[in-house]
Amino acid sequence: MQKLHDALERVGKVVLGKDEQIRLAVACMLARGHLLIEDLPGMGKTTLAHALSRIFSLDYQRVQFTSDMLPADILGVSVFDPDSRRFELRKGPVFTQLLLADEINRATPKTQSALLEAMEERQVTQDGESRPLPQPFFVVATQNPLDQGGTFPLPESQLDRFLMRISLGYPAPEAEMSLLRAGDLRERALDMSPALTVAELMALMAEVEQVHASEDLLDYLQRLLEHSRGCGWFTAGLSPRAGLGVLRAARAWALLDKRKYVIPEDIQAVLKPVCEHRLQSASGGTAGGAASRLLEAVPVVR
């Protein structure tokens, strides 16, 4: 546990002034979820992903998505080996523990869906043969919200595969000052030494599932979901899958707070990153501020 907090602190030294987002990203990992970072280039997305992989001693692969990329570029290719006279799978970059899928919205829908399927099923099926992905397996995908030309925005059904969507945003003034003083922190991220072993990380992930969620808490969550469906602000309310996602993320958040049970604060902390990318405002456009509206409208205790 203490090691986990050391880890958070050390990542904070590389991604400056973004403690909240780091915490969310780690919670997302502990909850076995994939993370979507939506931000402009140069905000430290890559640095964050890199730092996370180093600190948890995970294998790391980075794929820059482009429009001419094919599913095989991610998943791998079957090649004919003349020596053995058999097809062999040349594993693609997806066979790693932490995959940074940069600018995922640049790839064609077909390539996107190949990746997302692998994310969901945690295995790759090719030529009728399934190969499991390594354990643990995280995808950190980034996309540029302003970049519209020649992109294929992820459809709603695909966005659902990401447990959280966060954005880093510009650093605060003090953080930016330190950033300027320190120079490029990406180098430093590469040099970071691991704080937890993979086994320790897996143990923590198992621990997340043991975090208690009481009836009163589930009731609160249920009313939140129900309100999202009944209030009419959104074209469709939150799905049951979204509800499970909130609960998992809240459990991880509680564990990060060294608690063995979930409290409403945990739900409130993770609601925005878990839910907002799954909601579409009924009046058209994205549902900005949806989470805070929901939180205001639904009483914490009946």
Partner: peptide, 21 residues
């Protein structure tokens, strides 16, 4: 055009890099 390659693509092509757009 940009679309040509995409529209032609089908699952058969997966893994065969010999095709040139």
């Amino acid at each position: 055009g940009q679309y040509a390659g995409r529209q032609r693509g089908s699952d058969d092509f997966q893994g065969l890099r010999s095709y040139q757009e």
